[in-house]
């Protein structure tokens, strides 16, 4: 990127930004695409309607910090916090308990929408994953050998995968008897992504590397060379690429043509020596958003490697990115409390 001329950052002209005053833990859009929520380290969730971008509503949800956020129903959210609470926040800002787990943290939350308004909510508390239906009724508990560090549903909501020490456990959500598939690899796995077509599971590892298993055969994949820990993993639409943070560029591994084994990844928006902390692929196009430790946010076209600058490198490490379901908006949050919503919609 240019060293002398400061690029124009689109957030300043086509977006809205706020200082939320505390660590922005997660941003998520509602499933109806009408609002976005930011979970913040002061225990609040900030709700923003996309039709009224200047109106940021503050809802107190946790006595402590929020740790995880996921969409719920059409317009609401579920939030886990370090107060041991798993809570529901409706689109109009009312809050209710789904479950409370005492002093244990609710560290991971995942949600999946089934048809006819039904849905699944999963939350990890230590080694346990608790599964609820859309009403908050407890369906199941899954136990793991150590604390769960990443939790993800597959595209159809049939399986849920959890990362932990020494591998991943995949559970069939509706199975009568719980005999999980165990994907094993020694070490501490700290995050997880599942291929949208179910062809692979990939984890981030403590030793600045990724580990993966091809499905269904379980063949191992190892992707290394990262200077820092990978905090974010994201498959592109259809699963052609796996984007990852942890290097001084967005690193994208090809999951086609025999890859990623034996193939080099492509690197986007690199060259400044600043570590990428967040990546998120666009829901419709071969685009990827990336956030860096200095607050820089860009969107890159994977095909052409063209870079669109979104937010300037002024706001501390980027901690979260979220695309709206239709891909016309991008939400951004950083460690220093900066939050923004970028509008890509045609005017």
């Amino acid at each position: 990127m240019s060293q002398t001329v400061r690029a124009e950052f689109m957030l300043q002209t086509r977006g809205v930004q706020r200082d939320l005053g505390a660590f922005v833990v997660a941003a998520r859009f509602s499933r109806d695409g009408r609002s976005v929520a930011f979970s913040v380290g002061d225990g609040t969730v900030r709700l923003v309607r996309l039709s009224e971008l200047s109106d940021w509503r503050e809802v107190q949800v946790h006595d402590g910090a929020g740790l995880a956020l996921a969409p719920d129903g059409d317009s609401g959210f579920v939030s886990g916090g370090d107060d041991g609470a798993l809570r529901r926040v409706t689109g109009d800002g009312s809050v209710s308990d789904i479950a409370r787990f005492g002093m244990k943290w609710v560290e991971q939350v995942a949600a999946h929408a089934l048809d006819k308004g039904r849905g699944l909510i999963a939350a990890s508390v230590g080694k346990m994953v608790h599964l609820f239906d859309e009403t908050g009724k407890k369906l199941k508990e899954f136990t793991h050998p150590s604390s769960v560090t990443g939790l993800v549903f597959d595209t159809k909501g049939k399986r849920i995968a959890a990362s932990h020490y020494n591998g991943v456990t995949m559970w069939f959500v509706a199975a009568k008897t719980d005999t999980p598939r165990k994907l094993e690899w020694k070490g501490s796995h700290t995050g997880i992504a599942i291929h949208p077509e179910g062809e692979a599971v990939v984890t981030a590892m403590q030793e600045n590397a990724l580990h993966g298993w091809k499905l269904p055969d379980g063949q191992h994949m190892r992707m290394s060379g990262y200077p820092a820990k990978t905090e974010a993993l994201s498959f592109s639409k259809g699963g052609k690429w796996l984007a990852s943070s942890g290097a001084d560029a967005m690193v994208l591994w090809p999951f086609f043509g025999g890859g990623p084994m034996g193939k080099a990844p492509i690197e986007l928006a690199g060259g400044d020596g600043v570590i990428c902390t967040q990546v998120l692929c666009h829901p419709k196009e071969d685009l990827v958003a990336g956030g860096f430790t200095d607050g820089l946010v860009v969107v890159a076209d994977i095909g052409s490697s063209r870079i669109l600058p979104i937010a300037p490198p002024d706001h501390g490490p980027v901690t979260t990115l979220a695309w709206s379901p239709d891909g016309t908006r991008l939400a951004i949050g950083t460690e220093t409390g900066f939050a923004g919503v970028m509008d890509f919609a045609r005017r």
Binding site: F23, D42, A65, D82, S147, G187, M205
Partner: peptide, 25 residues
């Protein structure tokens, strides 16, 4: 740790807890 150091053991729960505590206002 998978770093060839046989006695290099680490508390993974503390890594997560420190990360989580840093999020608090």
């Amino acid at each position: 740790m998978n770093n060839g150091c046989i006695c290099c053991t680490v508390r993974g729960d503390l890594i997560r807890i420190v990360g989580g505590l840093m999020k608090r206002r």
